[in-house]
Amino acid sequence: MKNTIQDDENQRIVLRAVDIWKSYDQGTVTVLKGVDLECSEGRSVALCGPSGCGKSTLLHLFAGLDTPDRGKVWVNGAEVNRRRDLLKLLRHEIGFVFQLHNLIPDLTLAENCLIPTVAAGTNHRTAKARLMELAERTGLSDRLDHRIQKLSGGERQRTALCRALMNRPKILLADEPTGSLDEQTSEAVFDLLLELVASEGTTLLMATHDRSLAARCDRLVEMRGGKIREHAYAG
């Protein structure tokens, strides 16, 4: 069964996947089996499903980190795997948050956050101003010079969130962003995540196991066995 899942028709589609197939280990493990998905600008979409159902793979395909065996993926109207400027996609159009924070331990919080701006060649003053703004909003202002080892799990994930948003991407892909946190911290980080994407008009596509968190997104998409099985809208 193919499900073309789409937000309301008035919104611009920023993420689109059509008949995506993806397998690993020389085709012996098929993770995605004809996935179709569309996400509208400014909406938050939760991808739910058991481990191994292909949530992370789908996010990787949207970020251009991997290529589908079959099917096509578009981001902001451009087909990802035909783009010659994939770096632009990662630098300016998409931010990525992982389950494990994936910060560089020897750098400070501020330096970790500034990495995407270094990659993009952003003016240092502009980058610093953006860092201050995000740090203020995530409550990390007094931790900027702290090394990553000195931060708590929640602080690390908030740092990862800051880093992902540094270059003001219009799309945020989050792979189990609260998966490594305790329930209370998880709630707090997720609140912050939703608040940030809402205030910046960012589209959020988030893979998660946590149905209570997923229910707070505009849409919930259920994946099982490499396919999209059902979807639901908030409210």
């Binding site: 980190l65 990662l90 990525f96 994936n102 560089i104 990495i115 995407p116 270094v118 990659a119």
Partner: peptide, 16 residues
């Protein structure tokens, strides 16, 4: 290796 991957995901080019 993982660190290189993090840099790549954050927009570092191969040249960088």
């Amino acid at each position: 290796i993982r660190e290189v991957a993090i840099l790549r995901v954050n927009g570092f080019s191969r040249v960088q």
